[in-house]
Nucleic acid binder design. Structure first.
Lengths: 338, 338
DNA sequence: TTGTATGCGTTATCAC
DNA sequence: GTGATAACGCATACAA
């Protein structure tokens, strides 16, 4: 079978470098191309030689060189997950779902953080695109046209943003979650709502407002949007005054981060939640459940979105129905004061 | 932009495939090897031809194929950052620091999540190691020997764990932060502390206890460790009874996640913090500052740790002094009841 | 079923 | 300073 090695260590045909299929071929007494077949297309090789080759490979601790394979096949088994701002807790679940799904397909995931810079995001995309089989964009700052250009070169999926029919996207159906949230507020006696938008350029922020307005129209509530804010705790805190000025008894915010900030501002200024103001966020990020008071929120299945994005970019799934959102009632949404 | 060859679009020498240095060479009227030099080693080419080549490359929208380059040079300009559990918020600062530093060096970062499985971590490492220039292990579940094996094949840095002199690591100096925390508790009148360890296998958990014991010895306090727990909110919540049973007036936990859980358990059971029990965590994760009450904690500069890990694995920095930790006082640590 | 020959796109080693 | 040519390690038509 194998020559006697002079130790427990696998014998390396050549110095410190990793063994190649040539080394395996020599050890197994076959041609290198047979080794390649045995490892990539086992069904095209007799079971006997396949067995011999596997043993030789194991003995040598051989592993296919992914770079060489990629150069030949054009496929890298690698996906890029481009994150606009990795400090945003919503991406945690997306990353987790995506890495898990990618692993199931034998794919590795490259995660980039653009630190909110569209310039950097564009540069990373250009650099990465020849080295990956597909791109997933989460919280992208790129313009629709830039996204379309990328999508012409490699499979591309955008999470949580509709960029038209020239690029695929994983979207959420906001109505179930937002509908339930507004219904809940209506049942608690609220009649007048405020919405704190995120960045004006955010497509999803606009969608959230539209869904809120649909629900309000259906249930006969008023809704007023205040000035847009940065999607941060500071932005939410800064919005408190304006929200109170609207006379609304409940506020919905672009995301949890902002409402967490608004909650802090309310506490430090003696505005009681939910007695004086009910608060509802979006995303159900880490911390929403143990904020004080715990933050009611509308969430979408982000890990599922990450998984679906991977399946779509790999061509294993076509764009399906939007993912359902869900309302999570918590103490920050309470009855309107008598 | 259109794909029409005779439009304003860059002319593609061949069909849909990306242009190569051969295409650039033909367009610039030079040899392919000169193109390669002009792009990788501009100083070895006359400025005139370099200029011509750059123009031709730009015209063709040419980009070096990183796969082919990697096959030839053996360098991929890629690092793997292997995360033991990506749901742990501490890793996000590490990821952020590492991605930023890697970007500065023109390196891309592959992030993996082992989902707490050492088997999977080992498999990912074996699969990735031929495709990267180095490995960074954060929250690794691998045994020291496995780590040493990997370190023999590629540069490797472990974050927050000492694996001896056979692999590099980025460590924290726990004494400043823990010393300040214990001093703070002592000044508040505490005399008896409890420590809730994380997993018994966790090297860093043991280190934290040792540092606490050093500080207690110095300041004349008592410290008792209770049974180890899972490093989760559930684990921390489950430890509450045992902590109270020790008679300690203050508890330090392996990490913030656990102490956040303990805080919740205390609230739901009517144990007032800090009046009946002061609580101190580790890591200063997202949410620690707005928990109720806000959680005092000891933090290390995790983003800096990520940056340093990248520099070390790239060979740009040798292991330096441990990174300093810092105590962050917050209301969960208060005066001992009279 | 297996072996032969060639190409993937780049860099490296020579010549010139 | 530039050109020709051989690797890098694998996959794949094609021949046997």
């Amino acid at each position: 079978m194998t020559d006697l090695a002079d130790g427990a260590a696998p014998r390396r045909a050549r110095g410190g470098t990793a063994p190649t299929i040539y080394d395996v071929a020599r050890a197994a007494g076959v041609n290198p191309s047979t080794v390649s077949r045995a490892l990539s297309r086992p069904e095209r090789v007799s079971t006997a030689t396949a067995q011999r080759i596997r043993e030789a490979a194991a003995e040598l601790e051989f592993h296919l060189n992914p770079t060489a394979r990629a150069l030949q096949t054009g496929r890298t088994n690698t996906l890029a997950l481009m994150i606009g701002d990795i400090t945003n807790p919503v991406v945690f679940d997306i990353i987790r779902g995506a890495t898990a799904e990618a692993a199931q397909h034998g794919c590795t995931l490259i995660v980039t953080d653009s630190e909110e810079s569209s310039t950097r995001e564009a540069a990373d995309a250009r650099r990465l695109i020849p080295a990956v089989d597909g791109l997933i964009l989460a919280i992208t700052r790129l313009a629709d046209e830039q996204i379309h250009d990328l999508a012409r070169r490699k499979p591309l999926v955008v999470v949580n943003r509709d960029v038209g029919d020239r690029a695929a996207s994983v979207l959420a159906d906001l109505d179930p979650g937002i509908g339930a949230a507004v219904e809940h507020l209506a049942e608690l006696g609220h009649r007048r709502l405020a919405y704190v938008p995120g960045p004006v350029v955010s497509w999803i922020s606009g969608q959230r407002l539209l869904a809120i307005e649909r629900a309000c129209a259906r249930l006969g509530l008023d809704c007023e949007a205040v000035g847009p804010r940065r999607p941060t705790r500071e932005g939410g805190a800064a919005a408190l005054d304006e929200v109170l000025a609207t006379g609304a008894s409940a506020v919905l915010g672009y995301n949890d981060m902002m409402m967490l900030g608004l909650l802090e501002a309310a506490a430090s200024r003696g505005v009681r939640v939910p007695e004086q103001l009910s608060v509802v966020g979006f995303d159900d990020i880490f911390g929403a459940d143990f904020a004080s008071p715990p933050l009611a929120t509308v969430r979408m299945p982000l890990a599922l979105a990450g998984r679906r994005a991977v399946r779509m970019v790999l061509g294993h799934e076509r764009a399906g129905a939007p993912l359902p959102t869900e309302f999570v009632p918590r103490p920050s949404a309470g009855p309107v004061a008598a």
